[in-house]
């Protein structure tokens, strides 16, 4: 008797397994960066977008490099990232249709309040990095090919430092997301480059604070790209394009501007209608 009950349970579960994914709804997969998710931006934007269009955007958040790869393989309909050079390459090789700038925020250099490299209050990121290198002050790098990592490598280059060759034990690449990098910096009182949005949303700050901000070199542009439906036939190009169109529309831009933590805006809309 109880054998039949178990059999019935097994069958029920198997049936559930098969039936589960049949319910199709209007949805797209967006591969995006950790900063847009960890900062809470998508939690703010997506409900507004869904209310307007009925489209559910499912966000997979990865580093920019990985997010672009996900698009390249056809596992996402839209990519929403921040590394202009990589994005342009993505479009140039035909993986994406067209890149639309959406918004920007900025990077900030985070460091311990004790400030061993004596850079606090400076607006010169290049000088700050030189000072950190000079003092061999502890520095955490994402090391994960993300947009933030690309930006960091670019800044070292501008400081005239070949970080791949010159890094010492003070420079640690952790190969993880922004949050993990901040956690590591917090636990080891190190300097770390972060996007402002993730930093504002980050709770486990410990002794960390912003030490350098406001340099033009710290500008961080986000772009959104539809994955090329000619390469991947299943890409939901209408729904994906609807998402992009909404992001760069006055309404979407306003929604981005309205996302604030403690009265501070995290992202600044700057879409140009025609795209690049």
């Amino acid at each position: 008797m109880s054998r039949r009950i178990i059999l019935a349970a097994v069958l029920a579960v198997s049936a559930g397994l098969c039936g589960q994914a049949i319910a199709q709804e209007k949805s797209i997969v967006v591969s995006s960066t950790t900063s847009t998710t960890d900062s809470g931006l998508f939690n703010h934007l997506l409900p507004i977008f869904k209310a307007k269009t009925g489209i559910e955007a499912k966000v997979v958040s990865q580093g920019t490099g990985q997010a672009l790869d996900t698009g390249r393989r056809g596992d996402a309909d839209v990519v929403f990232v921040h590394a202009k050079g990589q994005e342009e390459k993505f479009v140039a090789e035909g993986a994406g249709v067209k890149r639309f700038p959406v918004m920007y925020n900025d990077f900030v250099l985070i460091g311990p309040k004790s400030d061993p490299a004596r850079v606090k209050g400076s607006k010169d990121i290049v000088g700050a990095l030189k000072a950190i290198k000079g003092k061999s002050a502890a520095f955490i790098s994402r090391g994960d090919k993300s947009g933030t990592h690309s930006a960091e490598l670019n800044l070292w280059k501008q400081a005239g430092i070949d970080i791949a060759a010159d890094k010492g034990p003070w420079y640690k690449e952790i190969g993880q997301g922004m949050g993990a990098a901040l956690n590591t910096a917090s636990a080891s009182n190190s300097y770390v480059l972060s996007d402002r949005a993730t930093w504002l949303h980050f709770k486990n700050r410990g002794e960390l604070d912003i030490v350098v901000e406001g340099d033009n070199k710290l500008f961080n542009q986000y772009g959104v790209i539809l994955v090329n439906p000619e390469k991947h036939k299943h890409v939901k190009k209408d729904l994906g394009q609807a998402f992009i169109d909404w992001l760069i529309s006055p309404e979407g831009q306003k929604a981005i501007a309205n996302y604030k933590i403690n009265g501070q805006s995290l992202f600044f809309p700057n879409a140009t209608a025609q795209g690049v």
Partner: peptide, 9 residues
């Protein structure tokens, strides 16, 4: 994992 990376320990 996500909340840890957001620093909300």
């Amino acid at each position: 994992a996500l909340e840890t990376s957001k620093g909300d320990l």
